[in-house]
Amino acid sequence: MLDIHAVAVVFSVYVVGVVIPGPNFVAVAHKAASTNTADALAMVAGIVVVNLFWATCSILGVGIVFATFPWIALAVKLAGAAYLIWFGGRLIVKAGGTSTARVDEGGPTVWQSFRAGIATNIANPKSMAFFAAVFAAAAPAHVNPPTFLAMLATVAVVSSTWYALVAVFFATPRVAARYRHWKKGIDRVCGSVIVALGIRQLVR
């Protein structure tokens, strides 16, 4: 039988967690404003896939795995921090570019954007910490298959809706035009924020 109360608790916790800006938000906003809607939504799809992976691990007990094998948590933490520093640094370096042209809609980079969404989220310390701690605490220790699938559907719908709204908003012509006008400064700020998140992950 479907445990509606458990699903409702997961929904209330996850909504708050997903809307708090982090590397995923920055990556989607940047992709939407600098390329096109299709690429941004492809990145969203990659992020959602990883969210479903983390949610599945969380419900099945990833916190127990990390507690039993702390070296796994450390390896994930270091890899995630390294990727964030690389990604942010790359954004800062490329901010000095002179090109302000936007990639044509339906370009050949959709698959690359999907993979970038996966890489960004799998290395996202905010996601890992949230699902390993907060989400795991909200989900019951043992759930039946219908409740398990309902929880995953909740994660998919909420994350898809939120990040798709972010993508569509930042891909609108007016917002994208403002981004291109202030591209150098915005990219440097976004890159600095991501690098800071990576460094913070290393020293915590």
Rank of each mutant, 00 (worst) to 15 (best):
T161A: 15
K183V: 03
P108N: 01
V195H: 07
M43Q: 14
A79N: 11
P21C: 09
H5W: 06
V175H: 07
E105C: 04
A153W: 00
N144R: 07
V168H: 07
V103T: 10
P173M: 09
L165W: 03
F130G: 01
V13W: 02
G97W: 11
V203L: 12
Q201G: 06
V193Y: 08
F170N: 07
V19Y: 06
T109I: 00
A81K: 08
G117A: 08
M128S: 05
H30T: 09
A29S: 13
V48N: 03
V155M: 01
W182N: 12
V28H: 04
G198L: 06
A45C: 15
M128Y: 00
N121L: 02
P108E: 04
S113I: 11
G17N: 05
T35E: 10
A116L: 14
A82K: 14
A171Y: 10
P23C: 10
H5F: 09
T109G: 06
P145Y: 04
P21N: 06
V10P: 00
L52F: 05
Y83D: 13
L84E: 01
I85W: 11
F148Y: 15
L165A: 15
C57N: 03
V50H: 02
F87V: 12
A119D: 07
P145I: 08
G88P: 06
G198D: 04
G88A: 14
A81H: 04
V7Y: 03
E105K: 11
P145W: 06
R178I: 07
K126N: 11
T98V: 12
F148W: 10
F114S: 13
T109H: 09
V203P: 05
F11L: 14
A73G: 09
I122M: 11
G80T: 10
M43N: 08
W182A: 13
V48T: 09
V10K: 00
V155F: 02
C190A: 15
G97N: 15
W86C: 13
A95I: 07
G89Y: 09
H181W: 12
L78F: 05
V193R: 13
